[in-house]
Measured scan of single mutants.
Amino acid sequence: NQASVVANQLIPIQTALTLVMMRSEVVTPVGIPAEDIPRLVSMQVNRAVPLGTTLMPDMVKGYA
């Protein structure tokens, strides 16, 4: 099973992502693949992302 990127904390809207905000976890449905974590650093979320939420491509500006 492929690991996805999951929020390690509440990430407020417009926040630039850092490594400490994300973790990898095998979840359903599958979100952004964990191997993309380095690419996500400094990208902004376009909505508030609660703790434990799987990051989906449409939540990160410039990802999809």
Rank of each mutant, 00 (worst) to 15 (best):
V41A: 05
M22G: 01
P57V: 05
I13A: 15
V20Y: 15
P33G: 05
A3P: 10
D36E: 12
E35P: 06
I32N: 00
A3S: 10
T28K: 07
P38C: 14
R39F: 10
P57Q: 07
V26C: 09
V49E: 03
V5E: 01
T53G: 11
V6A: 03
V45N: 01
P33M: 07
M56V: 09
P50N: 10
V45Y: 00
A16W: 12
T28H: 09
A7I: 04
I13V: 14
V6Y: 03
Q14N: 13
A16P: 14
D36K: 10
M22Q: 00
N8W: 04
A64G: 14
E25N: 10
V30F: 14
S24N: 06
M59G: 03
T53E: 10
Q9A: 08
S4L: 02
P50H: 09
G52L: 04
L55N: 00
T28M: 09
L10N: 15
S42C: 15
G31P: 00
D58A: 11
A16V: 13
V20Q: 13
V27A: 06
N46F: 10
Y63L: 06
V27L: 04
R23H: 05
R47G: 05
E25I: 06
M22F: 08
V27H: 03
R23A: 06
P38M: 10
G31D: 01
D58W: 14
V45D: 03
P29K: 05
D36P: 00
L19M: 14
L19C: 10
P29V: 05
M59S: 05
N8L: 05
Q2R: 07
D58E: 14
L19T: 07
P50W: 05
D36V: 08
Q14K: 14
A7G: 01
R39N: 10
V26L: 10
T28C: 11
G62N: 14
E35N: 14
L51F: 15
V30S: 14
R47L: 08
V49D: 02
K61G: 07
V45G: 00
A64V: 10
V45E: 00
T54I: 13
M43H: 09
L19N: 06
R23L: 05
L17R: 00
L17M: 14
L17V: 03
S42T: 15
M56R: 08
L19D: 05
A3W: 10
L10K: 13
T54E: 00
M21P: 01
T28N: 12
P57H: 07
M56T: 13
L10S: 13
I32T: 02
A3R: 07
V41G: 00
D36S: 10
V27G: 02
P38D: 10
A3M: 11
I32R: 01
Q14V: 05
L10P: 11
P38S: 13
K61P: 10
I13S: 13
Q2N: 11
G31I: 03
D36N: 13
A3L: 11
V6H: 02
V5Y: 03
V45S: 05
V49G: 01
L10D: 13
M59V: 07
P33A: 08
I11P: 00
E25L: 08
I13N: 15
R47F: 08
T28V: 09
Q14L: 14
I37G: 03
S24L: 06
L19Y: 14
V5H: 01
L19E: 06
Q44E: 14
M43Y: 11
A48K: 10
I32D: 01
P33F: 08
P38V: 08
V49P: 02
A34K: 05
S4Y: 03
I11W: 02
P29L: 05
T18G: 03
Q44L: 13
P57G: 07
N1H: 12
A3H: 14
D58M: 11
V60T: 00
V45A: 04
N1S: 15
D58H: 12
T53Y: 12
A7N: 00
G62D: 13
A48L: 12
Q9D: 06
S4P: 02
A48Y: 13
N8P: 00
S42L: 09
A16L: 10
V45C: 08
P29N: 05
T54Y: 03
P57L: 04
V6E: 02
I11H: 01
T53S: 12
L10I: 10
P57T: 05
G31H: 02
L40M: 06
V20A: 14
T54N: 03
M59W: 11
P29Q: 05
T53V: 13
A64L: 13
T54V: 09
L17F: 02
E35G: 11
V20F: 15
L17H: 00
A64M: 13
L19R: 11
V26W: 11
K61V: 14
S42E: 09
S24F: 06
I11E: 01
G62A: 12
P29M: 04
P57A: 11
L19F: 12
P33W: 11
Q9T: 13
M43D: 01
N8K: 08
N8V: 08
T54L: 04
P33Q: 06
Q44H: 11
I32E: 00
R23D: 05
M56I: 07
A48H: 14
Q9V: 09
Y63T: 03
V26S: 09
D58K: 07
Q2W: 14
G31F: 03
V49A: 04
M43L: 11
R23M: 05
M22C: 04
N8G: 08
I13M: 15
R39I: 10
L40Y: 02
A3G: 13
V27K: 07
L10C: 15
L19V: 08
